[in-house]
Simulated scan of single mutants.
Amino acid sequence: MTRAPLIALIDGPLAADAPGLAARMDLFALHPRAAESPAALHASHMAAAIRANAPEARFLGLSIFPGRLAASLATVAEALRRAAESEAAIVHCSFGQGEASPVLAQAVAEVLAAGKLLVASAPARGAPVYPAGCAGVFPVQGDARCTPGQWSLLDLPGARFGACPGGPGAPVRGASLAAAHFTGLLARASLEGGIEAMLQTPSFTGRERIGAGGPHAA
């Protein structure tokens, strides 16, 4: 039986008893109350969204957010390098840096050269963010047409893919959650018909357009 892929989750610190946690590397000294921080809550929501589509997913937690959801470029690059050197098959980044950087681009290139898939969140509006804007990355934004088990082929300048952004009242919504759902779909596909087969069958094609009848393809 094929083992569920290991996913390098670059985010806040996952709790030691988080479902699927195989190992955790903290790229900073943890605060005594880190487990109660917004960063830890964000990481737990991303892991849960991934496992919604891939219940057997395993995680290598790479903690870059010490409490609030902010990290230096050097810390992000170091986390990507560690992911590149790990046994993870998929690297997940539900965040974005506002400026392109040779340092970040090199770290992304190392991940891709190691044969790993890299998924990153991309905002629906505004300037591109990175690593989603780097070549070879799966950039994902929220698409209200999608349920957690669906994805869309948008082919937009900032995001090629869309996925479920979360329902009303969800504690986390938007591109971060959409990227996590998409990572879970990739993980599930790797155990079933294969990722290439999955990428041939989007639930929706074309950008989302909001009208009187609700979201639909343009």
Rank of each mutant, 00 (worst) to 15 (best):
G126Y: 04
L186Y: 02
E87Y: 06
G174D: 03
D11I: 09
P139K: 07
G166N: 09
A159R: 02
A187E: 01
A8G: 10
E87M: 10
L185K: 01
A135R: 15
M1P: 13
L6V: 13
P139R: 10
P13Q: 09
A54E: 06
V111I: 05
E36V: 04
L104K: 12
A16F: 00
G133F: 02
A40Y: 01
G126R: 06
R207A: 13
A70L: 12
P202Q: 05
W151K: 11
A113R: 13
H42I: 01
L153S: 14
A57H: 04
L153E: 15
Q200V: 03
G211V: 06
S190V: 02
E78V: 05
G162L: 05
G211S: 14
M46W: 07
A43F: 03
G98Y: 01
G115W: 02
A84G: 10
P123K: 03
P215A: 10
L156Y: 01
D143C: 12
L186C: 11
A23R: 14
L60D: 04
G98S: 11
R81G: 11
A144Y: 06
A34G: 01
A49F: 03
A175W: 02
E192F: 00
A189T: 01
Q150T: 10
C134P: 01
D11T: 09
R51Y: 07
W151V: 09
F161D: 00
P5T: 11
A77H: 04
E110L: 08
I195Q: 04
